[in-house]
Nucleic acid binder design. Structure first.
Lengths: 354, 354
DNA sequence: TCGATTTCCGTGTACGGTAACGGATAAATA
DNA sequence: TATTTATCCGTTACCGTACACGGAAATCGA
């Protein structure tokens, strides 16, 4: 492996000499630490400009020996569930930026328990990190939390979905409306569709931020634009009870002997898939979201035809990088809202997705 | 922005103390510089493992004061063509790793002129970089070149496609066979397909590496497995002459009044698209590859239904990162062959692809 | 006017590595 | 046994920046 010597690099000493001051003074100017006469200051700044001095980041990081912590606020989860991919992203990001002396910590809370969320928020504010990444679940609480962060000048990034505040440093996530629209396109696929089943889960939503609502709008818009005659039948299932799912779906499909078009707009399409498997139903086209292990398994074994997915791991990595760029290099993110790509997966390309 | 002091970080001195040697010895072990007894070596390695020592790359870069150059060998191109995305990746990677004092340089050659390729290879060997990334076009020449690189211990990574040598450091690219297979699936999409048109371009292939051959195999395998009765009609067009394209395609489609299934297995599907637009033909389903500007335009305006794409920019970034990890941190790549995902694009999700 | 501040600035050391240098010890040779 | 040679390893001088410390000069107050 060949190496090239760093050619004539300007150091802080060169600047000091050229400006007729000591490196201490140059450093004070560089960091606006005061205690420098206006005259020296100007002289130093001029010399820096003339020589094109750029501080050596390695030396700087080494000498300052600070390290930064970025905390990622995501719900607890079991292996293979939706958030595991995000979690994988956190780990990956942690590994990547550890070289910069930046630590990335996951902070988990129970998404069904608002107190647990409040608790972790408090903890974070107790000993504030350099930046926060947050997947919002509880709207009001999250807004209160980020207001605190703003007040303390701590940048935060939304991932997965974002809330209606304006102080966030950036957002990385899927365009929800369009994902619903696309989903309808994939589901119907130019075919002669008379009826689609929109399977939803019963969920007591009190103050929960539910981005899939936007997605549903996109889906329904597509349907009414392209298939105005088709009916969209809502089917509400209870995710807890498999027996009840069978009952509900049996009833919904009772009179329908045609090819069935079934869609779920959240990550739980595997529930439908396992129903279909149990009942050995094959004449249907099922589309869902997100690459949970169970969903991918259903893709492979054929119950689910397509999954629309996003690389939540990559999103997280991007979010962390954006924060690091800002915190260490003072570089702002190119664009605040980053709508990441929607991936269309079937059994042929899902193996290459990871 | 808060800062945290680096808590108990393991340094080379800690390792030295724990292993009962001097940091000089630890450094020799770290860099395989020899002059260390097997006993000390093992001891040091064990301690490193136990303590989880990770060299501070800032200190390392500062002390070693060298800078590295990575050169990327890709064909010349016009804006919007296939290689522009790769080129974008090079720029992005260059920006990312500049923090490490690593420079990334594109090196371009004329893909229709073997001498120009030989010329840049010579130039590179004249003043060898720390690593090379190469998109192989001329098989024999490339093999000769990489053999030279191997001999000099310079790691090289293939992107886009790879050749049948074994010394490459890594490969980042699409699984070509599977991409053809997937393409057929997307093209036929469960429908009653009797005939597909496989449009190809006339190309004098002498020693050219043509990865789309593998893709074609995948495509044809899918067809014979799923649509054994369907015919695949090859249509050879001349990319230079639009008038001739019209003629050829007119003739090919002359007797066919059904919905037409058309596919191109390289990035030139926009040629077919513009023919269809000129002739105002709409009853067809066209699938192609790669996100050239023209292809995406055809996707938006409807002549092309699906594009199968890969993030060649991301591939390049990954390749550069892999080299940097190796060159600077001595970290080998997790897996040698990295088959990146195949993206399915239509007019609804293509906007979010960049 | 003279000590007390305040303002400004140079010096020195630490940061965690790298690598040249030369010394000590053991092995090989005469 | 004396001497060369090879092997192994500790010492030390950096790398470029950050920042504490203390001193000199300038300003101030009475």
């Amino acid at each position: 492996m060949e190496e090239h010597k760093q050619e004539g690099k300007i150091t802080i000493n060169d600047v000091a000499k050229a400006a007729g001051v000591s490196k201490g003074t140059v450093d004070r100017v560089l960091h606006d630490r005061g205690e420098v006469s206006e005259k020296s200051r100007e002289k130093v700044l001029r010399v820096i400009e003339e020589l094109g001095f750029k501080p050596n980041m390695y030396a700087s990081m080494l000498a300052s020996r600070k390290h930064h912590i970025i905390q990622c606020l995501i719900p607890e989860f079991f292996t293979g569930e939706f958030w595991s991919l995000t979690d994988k992203g956190i780990a990956e990001a942690a590994d990547l930026v550890s070289r910069y002396g930046v630590e990335v910590q996951p902070v988990r809370y129970d998404q069904y328990n608002i107190e647990s969320f409040q608790k972790v928020c408090e903890d974070i504010l107790q000993n504030p990190p350099s930046g926060v990444i947050i997947a919002p679940m509880f709207r009001a609480e999250t807004l209160r939390f980020v207001r605190e962060l703003s007040a303390r000048g701590i940048p935060y990034i939304y991932v997965d979905s974002k809330l209606e505040d304006d102080d966030y440093f950036a957002y990385f996530g899927m365009p929800m409306y369009q994902s619903g629209y696309l989903c309808a396109d994939i589901l119907t696929m130019d075919q002669d569709v008379k009826k689609v089943y929109l399977v939803r889960i019963a969920r007591d939503k009190k103050g929960l931020s539910d981005p899939t609502l936007t997605r549903r709008t996109g889906f329904l818009d597509y349907m009414s634009e392209h298939y105005p005659a088709a009916t969209v039948q809502n089917v509400i299932i209870d995710p807890i009870d498999a027996g009840k799912i069978d009952e509900t779906l049996d009833e919904a499909f009772a009179d329908d002997h045609q090819k069935k078009y079934i869609v779920m707009l959240n990550s739980r399409v595997h529930l439908v898939a396992s129903y279909l498997k149990r009942k050995n139903i094959t004449d249907c086209r099922v589309v869902g979201f997100d690459v949970l292990e169970k969903n991918v398994a259903a893709l492979r074994s054929g119950q689910v035809k397509y999954l629309i997915a996003q690389h939540t791991d990559k999103q997280t990595v991007a979010a962390v990088n954006a924060l690091v760029d800002w915190i260490i290099l003072g570089k702002t993110v190119a664009q605040k809202d980053n709508y990441t790509q929607m991936d269309i997966l079937n059994n042929l390309n899902c193996d290459y997705y990871m």
